[in-house]
């Protein structure tokens, strides 16, 4: 199928600003789905609120646009209802790690089979540029007019320690890698997390004098390196990208199904 067959064309052009990285994530995600040969009916997409969440409106899957931070909680109910389908949950950094932080770590802990894509643009874009848990110390935002004094999360470490069984990081510049990573994340049986460094030239870029979308993507090109590279040893400030975790652990829905098979038909004790 052509890429556009996955898009609800009547809503295009989309609402994202010129150069927004979220469009690249959507573009890439479509190709991953296409490469996997999945039908549109095979995918349920559940999102929260924010720029990232708007992706559900544009893609012709089963789409559920929920509440700020709650996408994974809704998705958990959906997955238990339809364990046979692929669940993809696109989230923003605020959506996933601030208001939805609790749902995020617990979905990871349960290892429930779904794919969380965290489009990390380090800012609240929809509301106009407030600092998020990923903005970073010293960064500027409309709610940090004198510089941010909040320390940032590391999404990869957070997901890893919470128990996610697939954890990866990539950037919008490395879209070819992103396609491959998303393919692996989608077919992974368990909770998979893909952090995508995604530029917000309108707010994060402008507030922090990082240039336009092109400049921000160049910073991803120069500021990141594959996991375990020599470059990282020489320059510890480089951000590693690639697949950090990929392991098999009991998956929640499968385990629950085992309980049903064990006790079904038994009478009350």
């Amino acid at each position: 199928m052509a890429v556009r067959d996955y898009i609800r064309e009547r809503f295009m052009p989309h609402i994202w600003c010129p150069g927004c990285g979220h469009g690249i994530v959507m573009n890439t995600l479509i190709r991953a789905v296409e490469n996997l040969g999945l039908r549109k009916n095979d995918i349920i997409m559940v999102s929260g609120i924010g720029c990232s969440a708007r992706i559900t409106g544009y893609l012709d899957f089963h789409t559920l646009h929920t509440l700020h931070g709650r996408a994974l909680a809704f998705a958990t109910g959906v997955k238990l209802g339809r364990p046979d389908l692929h669940i993809i949950v696109p989230m923003g950094d605020g959506d996933a790690t601030a208001i939805g932080g609790n749902h995020f770590i617990h979905a990871a802990r349960r290892n429930i089979d779904m794919t969380a894509i965290i489009m990390n643009n380090r800012i609240y874009g929809m509301t106009g540029g407030q600092y998020s848990p990923l903005s970073g110390y010293g960064r500027m935002a409309t709610t940090a007019p004198y510089g941010n004094i909040d320390q940032a999360f590391d999404i990869v470490e957070l997901a890893w320690s919470a128990g996610a069984t697939f954890v990866a990081r990539t950037t919008t510049y490395h879209a070819h890698d992103m396609v491959t990573i998303l393919e692996k994340a989608i077919v992974h049986k368990g909770f998979s997390v893909v952090e995508v460094l995604s530029q917000c030239p309108t707010y994060y870029g402008r507030k922090n004098k990082l240039g336009d979308a092109v400049e921000m993507m160049k910073s991803y090109q120069k500021g990141t390196t594959p996991i375990g590279s020599n470059a990282k040893k020489q320059n510890p400030d480089l951000v590693e990208r690639g697949i950090f975790v990929q392991e098999e652990k009991p998956e929640y829905c499968t385990e629950y199904e085992k309980i049903i098979q064990k006790v079904k038909g038994e009478k009350q004790r």
Partner: peptide, 10 residues
Amino acid sequence: ELHCPDMAIE
């Protein structure tokens, strides 16, 4: 094609 945020290029 892959990096167009607007999906305008094919």
